[in-house]
Design a protein around this nucleic acid. Structure first.
Lengths: 131, 131
DNA sequence: ACATAATGATACTCATGTGGTATCATTAGT
DNA sequence: ACTAATGATACCACATGAGTATCATTATGT
């Protein structure tokens, strides 16, 4: 079970690269090698980040992507939310059979607590921290 | 992303059923309905629990399964370890590109901490708690 | 105008993991 | 012997994840 998937991994690498690059825009062609991922795949990821408003996109020759906000304001949690969907440990597979009082279920509360703490932790890691 | 999969879910229900049943042995045929899962599937799960020493198995007519230890000594973590493999959030997808100092990587430490806390929490939930 | 270099959108393929079924062998009670 | 149980495996179906391919669109530079 992975907490963080490839997309988030590559996205973080790319954003770190962009943060360090200190250029107006950075194209996928420029990033793909240092990030270590094929161009088309990275493009797909960058497009998602663009739709989510994490990066700006500039089309056309000389274009590319740019961070839409400062590295310290881009958190790992944002990347996870965008690229692997909201992190929910709490699918509550346990139904009425085991847990007559759904609302009071011990396990559900435990798992909900774990989830809250996990989210707080990944929310505390920014691109600046990684760069 | 699920912290706990179906196998663990069904196993917990079955063990709770057994803990409540207060019989020398409980057969799959008896459990499958209240647990809400097809017999063959539950059997496969019970076989794993047996190999792991969590339950005893009695073959032949009148046989079935029995808890190998008290409900308060069977934890959710044991079930997770047996049925979905050791819980590892920390696959460290981040390599040298982003994290020159593997041993000192902030992210790795964060994730390792989350994992430790998660394991401690699921270790604190027993079948007795659920019954 | 036109070639070129970039992103936007989308469809497709392939591998892996998960959930579930089927079958035959073995064991023990009646 | 018959029957009711587990033991062991092999198999299948579906969802998800990882990655590729293709065409459309936009902007720059000559």
């Amino acid at each position: 079970m992975k907490l963080i998937n490839r997309d988030v991994d590559y996205a973080a690498r790319a954003l770190v690269f962009m943060a360090r690059a200190n250029k107006p825009t950075v194209s996928v062609a420029l990033m793909q090698d240092p990030v270590g991922v094929a161009g088309p795949f990275l493009r797909k990821i960058m497009q998602k980040l663009h739709k989510a408003g994490i990066v700006h996109a500039v089309k056309g020759k000389g274009g590319g992507f740019a961070l839409a906000r400062n590295p310290e304001n881009i958190t790992l949690r944002q990347l996870v939310d965008v690229l692997q969907g909201r992190l929910k440990l709490n699918d509550c597979v346990f139904g009425q059979k085991i847990c007559q009082h759904h609302a009071a279920c011990i396990l559900r509360h435990k798992i909900a607590g774990m989830e809250t703490r996990l989210l707080a932790e990944i929310d505390g890691v920014t691109i600046k921290d990684l760069a």
